[in-house]
Design a protein around this nucleic acid. Structure first.
Lengths: 212, 212, 212, 212
DNA sequence: AATGAATGAGGGTTCATTCAT
DNA sequence: CATGAATGAACCCTCATTCAT
């Protein structure tokens, strides 16, 4: 699936990229504070450092901003995840590192993840699939690593279990962002990583040891 | 923390209850379709079966409707959870049943849970704590059951682990609602219950067997 | 000109009178606080001690309340004025007493006079003449006394002057109510009476003495 | 006391002035016809020659329009009064001219004066003082002229009397506007000026002659 | 390419009035 | 007679979007 194009009146591609980056930065801050619906296009323009007229030279509707923001956040998280998982490809160790890395990105980008998380649903039926696709891709990254472990004998899991685990890891990452009001009172991010990993691994290994 | 009172102009308490039930029912349907912000008060009134004027005899602001909706959903889920957890209080079996029961409620109330889940953030700073409190109470229900198992020796867990597990269970329930677009393609609710429970329990038991 | 009838559904005349008195009393308080337009019929009903339904058994529109209020206030002021002017009919002394009496009524009924003064304009084209008529009658009372003085030789004034003076007196009375925010800082009601009377009389006498 | 600022979204000050002038003009006409409360913002926008959206680019609330209207009318009357009183500063002649001038402004701006007069009370507690201040300033202008006459020996009055007279003049001006339904039947503006001035002056001079 | 004034559909809320009980 | 729930027209105000400069 190709990226969904957001039309701009301005031709200069470099300028478009630059302005949109300003825009995303400004918008995220606002969305964090008041959510997408309560943020006005004027506020976005102002926070981005240009006029409302200029804003509309780079997007066509307010919703485009949301799409751009979500897309950008997913890209950042996704990229970081990719890097972490690439080390020691397909071993238990790389999975462990991947999880830790992913949870840490979420921790660093708490606000962004939260925003994206809470506002995707405001995307039009048109844009939603593109963003959801990106989410699935991230889940699949975990799937691949786990499958790697299965292939190399470190784990023994059915296809169904692999998918379930991948989803769980992904959601537990987000969970650190959207339940922080509760979790942060009890755990540091390091506690959280250790606890969740242990809980997960003991289970996974148990599955294996049971088989043996 | 006492329930937050939503003021009504109408005095007859029974009528208030009745009208609000109509209201909640109508509103949920709409919120599911288009979200809180894209739903107008007029639409809510219509879907509830009365006029806009009447709507405002039972609430003071649009946000009250959201609060009422969230509150009501939490109450229903919470009540069902309570019932399920009450059987065989504090045994592994009751935990297992509790999880299954909870996941099933979420399945049955998918739409409601999703709505509540996506829109709580739109509640004012004023109302939010009341709803969040209710959420924590549900997490605590799981905590108690798990603690029961620890006390009767069926499980061996630290306080931290107990809390983590309770949160995980709670979130995995919600997850069935908010990731259904993806999960339902792979699992039935029964698959889901079995997989998640096994994954969880193997881990928990593993913890215990490790000790032995 | 006959009194304008305000229709009531209730037949019992005594009850109508009683309820309307309650109504006027309640309404005046509210009109003083927030003005006619910012006062709701519900508030009037509540302040009157009965329900909104009952309110509408005794009037037909909100404006009727205003008419009733204005009418009642004028009646009270008018009655008091009548009494004062009746003593020593048609002498300079009775004029002097009449002015003092009138200014004192205004002082005692400051709020009422103010309300009536500020809200008459909100009466419909239909009701306005009835109230204005009453105002003119009060002016005419002064006119008569002054004419009395002219007839008995105490004063020497043209018809035009008499009318002007009557108007002035009347307005100066109201002025004590509607400029009290300013006047009360400088004068007591007694100061005010003395100053205005002197200012007026010196003038009037001067006219006469000039003739001689 | 500085002028109360009414916030505008539009930056161009000249445009703001121009649009507000349109607005005031349109609003006065409407307020005269139906009063502030019965006039809608849409009507104001239409009468001003622009859309409702544009109206709100230049004000923040409906009440701002009323403030602007009152402020503008006072400014106009005040300015004219200033000019008239400046001639022959501080003599009986200048007082006489000032009164005549003031009464004539009121006559020319009957509608505006009436509106302002009847609607000031609808101003918020916030804006009222600014307008009342302006009223007092006008009264003070008369005070100064009269004091001038006292200083140059043309009049012999106490401070209290001076203030009283200033208030009376001011109110008699307004009176020409708010009692026109009655006064215009009897007098022309010239009659009115002559009668009131004579009545006033005879008194004042009498005071002086009495002293001699 | 950038600006910001103009637009007007549409949203939340109020409140005078009615009418069944 | 009294009540108060129901109604819906109408009001104030916001804000995404356009377009002339």
């Amino acid at each position: 699936m190709k990226k969904r194009e957001v039309q701009a009146s301005v031709k200069d591609e470099r300028l478009v990229k630059k302005r949109r980056d300003q825009m995303i930065k400004g918008a995220v801050t606002l969305f964090i504070q008041k959510g997408f619906h309560r943020t006005t296009t004027r506020e976005i323009a102002k926070a981005s450092g240009f006029s409302i007229g200029t804003l509309y030279e780079y997007i066509r509707t307010k919703e485009d901003v949301l799409y751009l923001v979500c897309d950008s956040i997913y890209d950042q998280v996704s990229e970081r995840l990719q890097e972490d998982l690439d080390t020691n490809r397909g071993t238990l160790e790389s999975l462990r590192l991947g999880i830790a890395g992913y949870f840490r990105v979420v921790d660093e980008m708490q606000d962004e993840v939260l925003v994206m998380y809470q506002e995707v649903k405001s995307l039009s039926k048109d844009a939603l699939p593109y963003v959801l696709k990106k989410e699935l891709e991230m889940v699949e990254m975990f799937e691949q690593v786990i499958n790697g472990c299965v292939e190399n004998g470190e784990l023994d899991l059915t296809e169904e279990q692999v998918k379930m685990i991948a989803h769980n890891i992904f959601v537990q990452g987000q969970m650190w962002a959207f339940r922080r009001w509760s979790l942060k009172k009890i755990y540091t991010i390091d506690d959280y990583i250790k606890l969740q990993t242990d809980l997960l691994f003991q289970g996974i290994i148990a599955e294996k040891s049971k088989q043996i």
